[in-house]
Every structure is written in structure tokens, then in C-alpha cells.
């Protein structure tokens, strides 16, 4: 047991042991959520700020509830109603929050490396809740937690991530976590959204869905990130669905015990058939439940005392 990090900035820099510490801690926090009294006093007196410069509902609510269940006070900060709109820099916004003696800043930002940037000058802990197309560490943690819960050891499992990989921070964080834990990762989607260079870090890349799902133990579907694409990467939604949508007939070609995952929000009838999303192989709602446990574990670990302090890498 050696957790010495003050921040959770990305999955890429975590060791396998650190990943396992988060996962085992999350298992105990999940049990807290199943009790009659779902709250523990661990972070009593601490203040957590949700600094969401990019809009989010589910991640923000999950972090908010996680902090509340640890007895912390939570302040929500959204870009639309803030001084960022008036031209204040991110650094000044964060410094102002720190002047109020907050203990944890959870940041979502459209720019890659924004959490790393904050961590270099803030004395508060920084948690990355999604930075541009870079990483979304807690989403990957809840995904591997869910896989581990359903399948046991992740080592040797065939995990297919299907959809928009290029613009997806969820995909990047998942790839790092899965590779570190020993899974075989296959990426699939239109060639414009699934570039071959992911093969360099150890993933298999294919542009044929049949090939990607045939031997999969887990299929993780990603939403098309319209907001992050500079131009249209495929002719039409209809064409995407016909080539890469998970339909009932395609599901019949998979392993019988395949798990269907999706980080949400789902576009029913686009990347996933509505019946499959609600079907018995889908663990989409369990992912939401586990997200709360994982975020409690992360808040617990980063706010605890520590020996030596980590220094964020200069290049993010």
C-alpha cells in the first residue's frame, strides 16, 4: 500500500499498483453506498469545488454526490455563470478559489493538460474530470472496476472499444488502464476516427466491426463526439449506424457472455440498439453506480495525508 499522490491527473502516469489501490478502495466505498446510512465522516470540514468549464451533468453529479457522501462541502462552478465568461483566466479563477481555502478542485476543461497546469501552482488537490480529448481518468477507473466486478481478473480479457477513438478522452484513459492491467485492447470505428497510430502503444486496430466483436469479452461503445470534431468524419449518422452500430443481429455473432458498456449519454439507435442498451448483457447502469464508488475512493486517496509530494510533469 503506497498511495502518495496529491492529484489524479491521468491514468497514463499511474503504476499498476496505484490502479489496484484505487480499485480495491472503491470496492469498500461501494459497500458504503449499499448501507442504510450511506455517508461517512472522512472528509468532514473539507471543501470540494466542481470547476466544470465544459458542461457535464452525470460526471458532475457523480462527483458532487461522492463528495457529499464523504461529508465534504461541495461548491459547483459552471462556466456559463462565471467570471470566465467575463474574461478571467483559468489560473486566476483557480487562484481565487484557492483563496477561499478549498481542499480539492475537480476540473473539467476543453483544453488538454488544464488539470496538470493547475496542479503546478495550486496547493489544493486537483482531480481531472476530463481534459479535452486527452484523458478522463475516473471514467476509465469505473469501467475497469465494472469489468473486474463482472469478469474477475482483467488480464487476458479481450476488450473492444468501438466508436470515436480519436476525439475520445474516455477511450484514451481506458486504453491506458486496460493495457496496464493486461487486457487485449481492440479499437474499431471509421478510419477517420480510429487512426492506426494506436497500434504503436499496443492496441489492435480494425475498421471492421465483425472482426472487432467476434472474440470480445467486453464491448465498450463510445458516443460520437460531435462537439470535438473539427469536420465531419463520416458521411452520415445513418451510415455510421449501418457500419458500426451494435444491432441485434451483430450481437448474435459475439460471445454469449459479452458485456456491453457505454459511458453515456447513449444515442439510442445510433451506436447502440435500444433493446441492447436495456438488455441483460448491458452493464451501463452498473457503471453509473460504480462511478460513485470510484470517485469516493479517489477523493479519499488524494485528500489523505502523504509523505513526499508528487510534482506534476512539465509536459502534459
Amino acid at each position: 500500500m503506497s498511495w502518495n499522490r496529491k492529484h489524479l491527473l491521468d491514468i497514463q502516469s499511474l503504476s499498476v499498483e496505484e490502479l489496484r489501490i484505487i480499485l480495491s478502495t472503491a470496492a469498500e466505498f461501494k459497500r458504503v453506498g449499499e448501507r442504510a446510512i450511506k455517508k461517512v465522516p472522512t472528509l468532514r470540514g473539507k471543501t470540494v469545488v466542481n470547476l466544470f468549464v465544459e458542461p457535464s451533468t452525470r460526471t458532475r453529479i457523480s462527483f458532487e454526490l461522492a463528495a457529499q457522501r464523504l461529508s465534504a462541502d461541495v461548491v459547483n462552478f459552471s462556466a456559463e455563470a462565471s467570471s470566465l465568461k467575463k474574461g478571467e483566466s483559468l489560473k486566476d479563477t483557480a487562484r481565487n478559489l484557492e483563496a477561499l481555502n478549498v481542499d480539492v478542485i475537480i476540473i473539467r476543461h476543453g483544453a488538454t493538460g488544464a488539470p496538470h497546469f493547475l496542479s503546478r501552482f495550486l496547493s489544493a488537490s486537483v482531480i481531472n474530470a476530463g481534459d479535452g480529448a486527452h484523458e478522463h481518468p475516473t471514467q476509465a477507473l469505473l469501467d475497469v472496476f465494472t469489468i473486474q466486478e463482472k469478469k474477475g481478473d482483467i488480464k487476458g480479457l479481450n476488450v473492444t472499444i468501438l466508436g470515436d477513438i480519436q476525439y475520445s478522452r474516455v477511450a484514451r484513459s481506458n486504453i491506458w488502464a486496460l493495457l496496464k492491467l493486461g487486457a487485449n485492447v481492440t479499437l474499431c470505428g471509421p478510419s477517420t476516427l480510429v487512426p492506426r497510430h494506436f497500434e504503436e502503444i499496443g492496441c489492435k486496430v480494425t475498421h471492421k466491426i465483425e472482426e472487432a466483436i467476434a472474440n470480445a469479452d467486453i464491448i465498450n461503445l463510445l458516443r460520437i463526439q460531435h462537439e470535438r470534431q473539427r469536420q465531419t468524419s463520416f458521411p452520415s449518422i445513418g451510415e455510421y449506424t449501418s457500419l458500426f452500430g451494435l444491432t441485434k443481429s451483430r450481437l448474435e455473432t459475439t460471445k454469449k457472455d459479452v458485456l456491453i458498456m457505454h459511458p453515456g449519454p447513449i444515442n439510442r439507435g445510433v451506436e447502440i440498439d435500444s433493446d441492447i442498451a436495456d438488455g441483460d448483457r448491458s452493464v451501463i447502469l452498473q457503471q453509473v453506480t460504480n462511478g460513485l464508488a470510484v470517485r469516493m475512493a479517489v477523493l479519499y486517496l488524494v485528500t489523505g495525508g502523504r509523505g513526499t509530494q508528487e510534482i506534476a510533469p512539465a509536459s502534459a
Binding site: P41, G304, G307
Partner: peptide, 18 residues
Amino acid sequence: SMHRDDFSAQIPGQVHPT
């Protein structure tokens, strides 16, 4: 471990099952 009063002073301990 979730109920300790020295939480901020120590490296967070491993949480064992209850």
C-alpha cells in the same frame, strides 16, 4: 479508516472490508 480523526495527517490507509 473512513472514521479516523487523523485522516489528514497520515497516508490514507488501505480500506479493509467491513
